[in-house]
Design a binder for these strands. Structure first.
Lengths: 124, 124
DNA sequence: CTAAAAGCTCACATTGATGTCAGGGGCAAG
DNA sequence: CTTGCCCCTGACATCAATGTGAGCTTTTAG
């Protein structure tokens, strides 16, 4: 498939897909005229990249964890494991932070609700 | 307390504290010479703002939810409730997204571990 | 063949919280 | 008084992913 279809299937803009490639997150074969061509498996690749970007990872971090343009090697693998461990911890902390923010929000919602309820009582 | 102490207590930089005030997220009384003075309760306020910012909310959103410079009113309260509901949903989705990313990461970690284990076996 | 639709590269703009620097007061202790 | 430390405002810089537009080529459909 070409870039438009990959974009449609993943929701990533054409611009973003070219950017991913520029950052080494995605590879493409090129037709003689220079157009990018992708296989079905690249859909999953893009989804993975999207998930990690949405999780607040930088493209540099992702490329260190899940390279697609470098040879696999034990050294790389070990380094990747270390980074993945750090990112995993970061994600867990982020999740906790979001949960705490949600709890705070719930508290505020309750307060606000109580305030409106009281106002309604005043009217009655 | 003055801005330096509030900064030390919350971890927010002086720059950020001034920015919060500029955005209507924080109030301060001023000494005759123009220096900001805060009360103990402002520490909690800053922590709330930090939690919400870290949760990906914009300062504009926060100020609509938890204003500190506008009169409370029922209309505001109702609007705030609506926004809070939206933000709560967004947070829940974000949490799910992070959890999914973490799960994907766990999968990759396992793969990587298996790869290294196999390499070690090769050596043996 | 021709026109529309899709691709390509290059380059500049945007967003939002924060960093940083400049130039100038304020205030306490020696 | 002066030295040192904190504060003030205002302006410009940063980062990272993405948007956008120009100018040009390729592919596809009628």
């Amino acid at each position: 498939m070409r870039i438009g279809e990959l974009s449609a299937r993943t929701g990533a803009s054409r611009r973003s897909l070219r950017y991913y490639e520029e950052q080494g997150l995605l590879v493409s074969s090129r037709s003689p005229s220079g157009q990018r061509h992708y296989e079905d498996e690249h859909v999953q690749r893009v989804r993975l990249v999207q998930a990690f970007l949405a999780a607040g990872m930088s493209s540099g971090t992702i490329v260190e964890m899940v390279p697609c343009m470098t040879e696999p090697s034990e050294d790389r693998a070990r380094q990747a494991l270390e980074i993945m461990g750090r990112e995993r911890a970061r994600l867990s902390e982020a999740i906790d932070g979001l949960a705490a923010a949600r709890a705070a929000l719930d508290h505020l919602i309750e307060d606000n609700h109580a305030y409106l309820t009281r106002s309604a009582d005043d009217e009655a």
